[in-house]
């Protein structure tokens, strides 16, 4: 327990900044929706005629003029990308930061097993992601209830859920990488997040690359699919969960045997 509290205290500034930024930007998109919706007629035609760009963000399959469609796209841009970067950085720094800041010797010379360190650090990463999502979802739902008539709560819940799972998956994969590296790899973390994001965009544009959808968690956060199916796409979710489990397993296997520099 002291280790989890210590981890949360150490990371509270990062959590605060990411949470504030994501909440603020997503909040703004909600607040401006009524005004946007009025001009949506022309806008929608414009969005529909942007070719590959339209497909890249899945805007060919949803109605941008409706709140659920609009919310899906905006949420994907803000919470999708922001959350992915936050989760990647939190995951990749969890274990590696001890070695890059030379504090591993201090921590591991206390009577606490390596497996316990990995478990507690993982719980701390999960807690950080939960805190971010609770605040973002809480404030955005509140704003929506005030500003939007008959908000599509079920769709919103599914979209929020999909991004929460996405953040966990990316965090767990990066957590696995974290056990193998000694340097503080925030850049690498952001790179991983960005790679997943780009993979999804590529697979949206190019029909031949549909298989890539299995590699990126952004596949099951696709709001067009969620809105039309009423659920997340299970096959992508299953593959994603497998990657996440592999990430955690690798972290345990590597970190319990690793030589600490």
């Amino acid at each position: 327990m002291p280790l989890i509290l210590h981890e949360l205290r150490k990371n509270c500034l990062a959590v605060l900044i990411w949470t504030t930024a994501i909440t603020f930007m997503l909040g703004v998109t909600i607040v401006i929706f009524p005004e946007m919706a009025g001009q949506m007629g022309e806008m929608e035609n414009m969005f529909a005629e942007m070719g590959a760009f339209t497909e890249a963000f899945g805007m060919d399959r949803i109605n941008f003029g409706e709140f659920s469609g609009y919310f899906g796209i905006e949420c994907g841009n803000v919470l999708g990308m922001g959350g992915a970067f936050f989760a990647a950085v939190a995951g990749i720094a969890a274990l590696s930061s001890e070695e890059s800041h030379n504090t591993a010797e201090f921590l591991l010379s206390h009577p606490i097993s390596r497996a316990r360190v990995v478990t507690l650090k993982l719980l701390s990463v999960i807690s950080q992601i939960i805190i971010l999502n609770v605040v973002v979802v809480g404030i955005v739902v509140l704003l929506t209830a005030v500003i939007i008539d008959n908000p599509p709560y079920k769709t919103m819940f599914l979209i929020f859920l999909s991004y929460f799972i996405l953040q966990l998956q990316i965090a767990f994969i990066c957590f696995g990488i974290s056990a193998f590296i000694k340097s503080n790899a925030i850049g690498l973390g952001i790179g991983v997040g960005f790679m997943f994001y780009m993979t999804n965009i590529l697979s949206n544009i190019t029909k031949d690359l549909k298989l890539l959808k299995y590699l990126t968690p952004f596949s099951y956060t696709d709001s067009a699919d969620i809105i039309s199916n009423g659920h997340l796409t299970y096959k992508y979710l299953l593959v994603g969960a497998t990657f996440a489990v592999i990430g955690i397993a690798l972290a345990f296997i590597k970190y319990t045997k690793k030589d600490i520099a």
């Binding site: 210590h6 150490k10 800041h101 030379n102 504090t103 010797e105 201090f106 010379s109």
Partner: peptide, 9 residues
């Protein structure tokens, strides 16, 4: 244990 290079958070 006192490490040679004592680093802290």
């Amino acid at each position: 244990y006192l490490p040679a290079d004592a680093s802290f958070y």
